[in-house]
Simulated scan of single mutants.
Amino acid sequence: MHISGNTIFIPGATSGIGLELALALHAKGNEVIVGGRRAELLAQITAEHPGIHTIRIDTTDADSIRDASSRVIAEHPELNVLIAMAGIMHPEDWTRPEGFLASAEATVTTNLLGPIRLIAAFVEHLRSRPDATIMTVSSGLAFTPLRITPSYNATKAAIHMLSESLRLQLAGTSVTVSELEPPSVATDLMPGQRESAFAMPLDEFITEVVGLIESDPDAREIQVERVKFLRYGEARGDYAETVAALNHLDPHGN
C-alpha cells in the first residue's frame, strides 16, 4: 500500500486506532471513508474533520455490510484500499460455562466473521483496480496468548492465517494483502487499557505505523517494535517465557 493517493474505506474507525489511523492517512493525501455503527459519532467526525467521509455500517450484520459496501463502491468508485478495523475484546472465564459463551460468540462474529464478510463484499471491486490493498488487523495476541481473552486471541490468530491464505490466493492479481499487528495500545478496547503502563501510547503507535507503510509499501506484516516480543517468541525459542511474561506467570504456567 502506497502512503498516499489512495481511496480507503476503514469500517470500525469511529474511535481508537481506527480513527487515528484514518486521520493520519487522510493527512498523507488519501481520500478516507470511515465506517461505524453510531450515527452521532459519524456526524461528529464529519464536523470535526472536514474531508473525511463517513458511512453507517454494522460489521456484525451481513445485510448492513452488503448495503454499505454497495454504497461505498457507488459513491467512491476509485476505492482501492480496505482496512478491516472493527474489533472487540472482552475478558472471559472458561472455567465458568455461564460466563463466556455469549462473549465468545460476539467476539467471533465481530473479529472474524465481520472481516470475512467485508472482504467478500469488496474483493471483486478491488481486483478491478490497478493497485489495491486489503489490510487485515490481527494482534500480538495472535502469536502469544493473553490468559483472560481466549476468544480474542483465537480470532486474531485466525485473522493471521486468513491473511496468509488470501495472500496466496490473490498472488498474481492487483490486490496485495497486508496485516497490521498491534501490541497493546492505549485505547478503550479493554477497561483500563488506556491507562495501562504496558500499553503503547496511541500517537506513538500511529506515527510508527504510518512510517512503516511509507518506508515499505509492500510489507506483508506491519509490526511496530513493541509487538515483536509477542510476535517472535516461538521463533526465538522462548515462547514459554514470553507467555509467562505476558501473563505474569512462571515459565511453567503457574
Rank of each mutant, 00 (worst) to 15 (best):
I83E: 00
F100M: 10
P91N: 12
L118P: 00
A120E: 15
T109W: 06
S184N: 07
V108T: 10
H160A: 03
A171W: 01
S174W: 00
L146V: 08
L126K: 04
G87C: 05
A157I: 04
F122D: 06
S151M: 03
E179I: 01
A142R: 02
Y152I: 08
G140Q: 02
Y152W: 07
P182E: 08
P183M: 01
M135N: 09
R127M: 15
R117P: 08
N80S: 04
A120N: 15
V177Y: 07
V108K: 00
I116T: 12
S178L: 01
A171N: 13
L146Y: 02
S139D: 02
T133L: 04
I83N: 06
A102P: 07
T155K: 00
Q169A: 14
G87M: 05
P97D: 12
D131S: 13
L79P: 02
S139F: 00
S184K: 06
L141R: 12
T173N: 04
V185Y: 02
R117L: 13
S151T: 12
M135E: 04
S174F: 08
I119Y: 02
S128P: 08
Y152F: 11
L112F: 13
I119V: 15
T173P: 02
A171I: 00
A154Q: 07
R127L: 15
I119G: 10
A120K: 15
I119T: 14
D131R: 14
A102E: 14
I148W: 00
L82N: 03
T144E: 05
P182M: 07
T149Q: 01
V177F: 03
A158D: 03
T110I: 11
H160L: 07
H90D: 15
S178A: 15
P91A: 13
L126W: 04
P182Q: 06
R167Q: 09
N153A: 00
L162M: 11
E164S: 14
L180V: 02
T107D: 02
G114E: 07
I159M: 04
E179K: 11
V175R: 02
I134S: 08
A104T: 13
N80I: 10
I88V: 14
E98K: 11
M161W: 11
N153R: 01
E92A: 12
D131M: 10
V108F: 10
G114T: 05
V108Q: 02
L101S: 11
L82F: 05
S128F: 11
L170G: 06
V177K: 04
E105T: 15
P150N: 00
F122K: 10
N80T: 00
